[in-house]
Design a protein around this nucleic acid. Sequence first.
DNA 1: ACGCCGACCGTCCGA
DNA 2: CGGTCGGCGT
Length: 770
Amino acid sequence: MSIYDTLNPEQQRAVFHDKGPLLILAGAGSGKTRVLTHRIAYLIEEREVNPWNILAITFTNKAAKEMRERVDKIVGYGSESIWVSTFHSTCVRILRRYIDTLGYDRSFTIYDTDDQKSLMREVCKYLEIDTKKMNERGILSVISKAKDELVSPEEFALRAQGDYQQSKYAQAYTEYQKRLKLNNALDFDDLIVKTVELFQTNKEALNYYQNRFRYIMVDEYQDTNTAQFRLIHLLSMGLNEYGEREYNLCVVGDDDQSIYKFRGANIHNILNFEQAFPNTKVIKLEQNYRSTKSILNTANEVICNNKGRKDKSLWTDNEEGQPVCFTQFATDFEEADQITSEIKRYVEAGEAGYNDFAILYRTNAQSRLFEEKLILRNIPYKIVGGVNFYSRREIKDILAYLKTIDNGMDSIAVKRIINVPRRGIGLTTIDKVNDYAIRNDISFYEALTRAQSIPGLERTASKITPFVSLIEGLKSRLTKEGYSLNELIDDILDATGYLRELEEDNSEEAKDRIANIDELVNKLVSYEENAEEEPTLSGFLEEVALVSDIDSLDETNEHIVLMTLHSAKGLEFPYVYLSGMEEGIFPGYMAIHAENPEEEIEEERRLCYVGITRAMKGLSLSAAKQRMLRGETQFNRPSRFINEIPRYLLKMNASSPKKIQSGYQTSDYDFNNHTPFEKSIEFEKSSGTGSYKQTQIAYKPYSTPEPKQFAGNNMGTLDYGVGDTVKHIKFGTGEVIDIVMGGKDYEVTVEFPNFGVKKLLSSFAKLVKI
DNA sequence: ACGCCGACCGTCCGA
DNA sequence: CGGTCGGCGT
């Protein structure tokens, strides 16, 4: 009996693969993390690979942490010397050691999106770019895309020749990079790009890491971009002791779960892996251990509408399970209300815990309504993503102090805090200092130290000097033996008067801010206590820069989890609510109206597939007919993805993922009150037979305030009668000759001039009174 | 220099 | 709806 006996034959083939490139196509829930961890154990224990020679790369810290824990459990010794980390932390670690050869200082800081925007604002001002015509975000996204593809500013400029718009971008890109370097800062994309640059220009560094990482594993490979591909490619080209290239590269991914095209993921990395790495062994993991047959079938039905996939079909031995449900609510408000109350009922009935549920949505903005309802019902919850803790003003302020102390070259940080709290240093002063800094080719902070000698600042210099001494004072304390980061942050809060100012302000907002600062102090203390190496200020700032919200998610806590579909990738939950299944929301407006809608819709469909496959036991899909979006009301049809699920798999209008038959009222919402689907047209021909019976659920009529557009076909509120002329989507206009009550529905008989007499169900036929 | 207010605006997704 | 920015008054 060995640890490998519990693996299925395909998993074993992947684990026991010896040398050379290996592509594992691992469907959702097929146990890929298990395969990766067992493979690591196998390499060490059976192939006598030195743990030191293994690199495992993931996309999130959470995944890295989990893999580390699982490896620790099954690898007897030496597991701590396996390098398990994310792309970004791997690169930071490499750059901290070698980046001086690229002309940066090793204490570089990492710019987040806000910092990037501030810097780009300066760039635009300098280049006299009208940010109304080309906004900072737009320029940054062009630059980011270039970096993802390893296009340098020089190359970008070359390609842009003759195109005014592109040339502007090229100028901005060049200037932006110049200023990043001046600030001794790297943005997220730079972390990868600069590491590739390092390896291409510094043979010694490349050799060192090639030699070290003889076995490389990459998780979520479908989400890698071109720069990351190049990085892996370079690393995997090391030679073994006989001078041979082995390409001991094992990548795990699922092309159906590629959902990060917008941030540069290149699906060709996985589709063309076999071409890029000759003699690749391909192993498919197609048995799903996570979901019920109902859920898996639903997922397969949706994803099979995509073209250009790797051929594979997921199956499961699990039970059939509860059918997947779809509910169309009248409003987004009601959607949130019903879903949260349903979850509460389950938990109070003892059928599940709050941590068994996840509510997923396409955009973060959709979380707000759910949050309000959860607070109202006193249900514990955690929202992943959205407004980042580290992007709150007070946190950014304190971090800017820490950054200024750590790296005075980071002008964005210095400018942020120079007048926070108020020191009477205004914009005009800052501009003068800035000009002086640029003219003398020194950093902004350096210029501040020479304030007295800057022409025109004779008077304001008296306000600048105390700020400089404050920072210098804090810096010098930091160099003292035994002075902790915890003390530093306390000194900052005290010496600047930042905390005092908040304490004197008795508002609710100020109290929140203080609480947030306390939270930051907690994080710093726990960093100091848990740091693997000597805790340093740079180390803390780095951790903060690279942390993502999902990393702190603890599924064992008793709370519902709310997050976007993107954040949910890689996770699983017993019961999943997939909300906002509406055209314009999911698939999103941007995808539908893109230049290449087919491609964009396929990406959305993969996202839908990811969402569906998160569910283990129960899946409930929902839409709202009416939704508030940026202050205005939208009316949306149900998502096309709902239409792609065959009727027999979908239990319509029931809002429960399980035990719907148990007798109680799942929802007092008007079940019939939904917009008909296109597929329902076919269904009319066989009305009264087939799977429709499933949907005959007891309900009590409930009238909801309705927009006129949707009042045409719901039970109890038919706005047409016998003798009226109505319009049908397929049959055109006709006259209503009879209406009878049938089951929970009206059976409407209509005479169409061109199609004859048809019997239609009011809830499915889109009959509109003319 | 700074704070207030009204106009405007623009949107997905994220390390 | 909610954040941001620019104009204006102090």
